[in-house]
Design a protein around this nucleic acid. Structure first.
Length: 273
DNA sequence: GATATATGTGTAC
DNA sequence: TACACCTATATCG
């Protein structure tokens, strides 16, 4: 679930459900008991996503509740009273308002940040393709002088904030760029292509709540099979399709580990620099 | 029941 | 590069 589009959806969902109204906050699991007590009873006035980070602001506090889902974190929303039972014991943060509740389980981070901590967090994030204030040139300045492969740069949140393993694989496929190409070997046009496509793909992800990729117009017709509907719940061309024929050119999709993450690409469609 | 896996990141060696 | 961490779900025996 948790690439940047998910977090932007969560921010919007928080505002819809709680925006401007006071909420009750608690931590059934206990590990965020102090933080929850601190915001309990205040109105939720800020819910904003920066890459994969969610920031919630309550009342006139300048501090923010900072949530990062990590690999396993999940939110569940509902109307009415949150369900009791064993599954409630794993809820790190629960917000309840008149409109419903939000349960957070398994986050990598759930903490209160003072303004200085918020600034440090935001300072180490690159531009987020889903934010109107994002400046792709800021990312390009990092990319263009890096010897790291573009596949590594796209997962570095200090270069670009938001894309995860699926968007990385799919955007490089759609742009026909080999994951191995060094950042400094990319042209400005290629970077522009990657960025603009991230904006399109991730905005679609925010709307639909899943990651779907479609054949870009500059690519030849697909071979008649639909893209894989992955366990993640979306239609993709290369992500987790190792060994299967590319839907565009028929070449087997390849996979390898790069810096601890699974990387997928089509050697037929994705050329060097 | 045990084990493997996952869309992520931070720290230590 | 390895591992630690957080949780749920799928798959295997």
């Amino acid at each position: 679930m948790p690439e940047g589009h998910t977090i932007h959806r969560l921010a919007a969902e928080h505002l819809r459900m709680f925006g401007g109204r006071s909420v009750r906050a608690c931590s059934p699991q206990g590990r965020f008991a102090l933080g929850a007590a601190r915001v309990d009873g205040r109105p939720l006035v800020v819910a904003e996503a920066f890459g994969k980070h969610l920031l919630l602001g309550f009342g006139d506090e300048e501090s923010r509740v900072h949530v990062h889902l990590g690999l396993f974190g999940k939110y569940s929303f509902g109307t009415g009273v949150p369900p009791a039972g064993v599954s409630a014991e794993s809820v790190r943060l629960r917000l309840e308002g008149e409109g419903g509740f939000a349960d957070l389980r398994g986050p990598a981070a759930c903490e209160v940040l003072e303004p200085g901590g918020v600034k440090r967090l935001l300072d180490r994030l690159g531009p987020d393709p889903l934010r109107a204030d994002a400046d792709p040139e800021e990312a390009w300045r990092r990319v263009r002088r890096s010897r790291l492969p573009i596949a590594a740069l796209l997962l570095d949140q200090s270069v670009v904030a938001g894309p995860g393993n699926i968007y990385r694989a799919e955007v490089l496929f759609r742009q026909g760029i080999s994951p191995e190409v060094q950042g400094r070997a990319l042209s400005a046009e290629q970077w522009r292509g990657i960025w603009d496509d991230l904006v399109v793909l991730m905005a679609a992800g925010v709307r639909s709540g899943r990651i779907d990729t479609v054949r870009p117009e500059h690519m030849p017709e697909a071979m008649g099979r639909p893209p894989r509907v992955d366990d993640h719940g979306g239609e993709v061309y290369v992500y987790r399709r190792a060994g299967l024929a590319c839907h565009v050119c028929g070449t087997p999709v390849r996979a390898r580990e790069l810096m601890g993450r699974n990387l997928f690409w089509c050697p037929g469609c994705q050329r060097a620099g």
